[in-house]
Amino acid sequence: MNTAAIAGILNFLVSFAIMASIYAIFTMGLNVHWGYTGLLNFGIAGFFALGAYTSALVTSPMPTGMMANYVKQAFGLNLPFLVGVAAAALISGLIALPVGLLTLRLNEGYLAIATLGIAESIRIFFNNESWLANGPQGLIGIPQPLCTLVPPGYYNYIYLVIVLIFLAAIYVALERGIRSPWGRVLRAIREDEVMSGANGKNVFFFKLQSLILGAMIMGIAGALYAHFSAAIQPGVFEPLFGTFIIWAMLTLGGTGNNKGAILGAFIVWALWSWSTFFILKIVPAGFQTRAPFIRYILIGLLLVVVVLKRPKGIIGEERHVSKF
């Protein structure tokens, strides 16, 4: 193999690892909601979208000259990357507050559907309100941090390091948090809401905290996604897909386990992005355009088989026996 081929494979692997790590952060956010607190949030794509748009608007400059004719945005603050990510977390968390106040008193199934509706409404809002973030065309040219350090061809290596730092930091913080007294209360709420209510813990308040924390993590994941792809449109945040693939990742890896969340994200994303690659080599030429869709079948089958054969996921929950 020549060096160009090796470089190509490496490039593919690096961008795969970046996306998988972003999804892993997203999945850990869901794990806070569902794995640790038992909140059925089906609106997670909405928080991811909020994070992505917030960071994009905060870090990019207001379009000028020719661009101003094509790209409309409410504001462009031209602030550093880290400020953008922090703002993403903040806005996602802020929006989670009213969402939680409205919906957390609903029973769990209805909470799921209500959040799904809210996420779709957020997407429709971004799609329609062109003044805010350019409507269906979305934003392009979102700044990438440290992009002047290396030639563009090598930039992904730098970004991978940035994403991995976020992944590690969030993982460590969550593992600490879940072992703290606060984390034990969350698990108690999930295992038996009535009991922990009787123990005098304010169940609703803890659920709200969990919802906000998870939403902030999802917002960070959204921001990282925006700066990686450098372009975002509302279409990327379809709740029915963006939400359920993350649920599939968590279910596969192991609900209630951050390692499981990371593993699930890597497996599902590998299946999703690699299957096309391999299938294209084996199918007849006339079939090429349809072959990529086999990944729907693969992930769907994997999900059904895991749910049937390993209901606690590939790793399963650590230490505590889950009742789900």
Binding site: I297, G300, L303
Partner: peptide, 22 residues
């Protein structure tokens, strides 16, 4: 748990859609 069946039905949905696409 009912959510487990719900997730399984998401898997079924993807398989069916994949087949239609194929």
């Amino acid at each position: 748990h009912f959510i487990t069946s719900f997730i399984a039905s998401v898997g079924v949905a993807w398989v069916l859609r994949g087949l239609i696409y194929m």
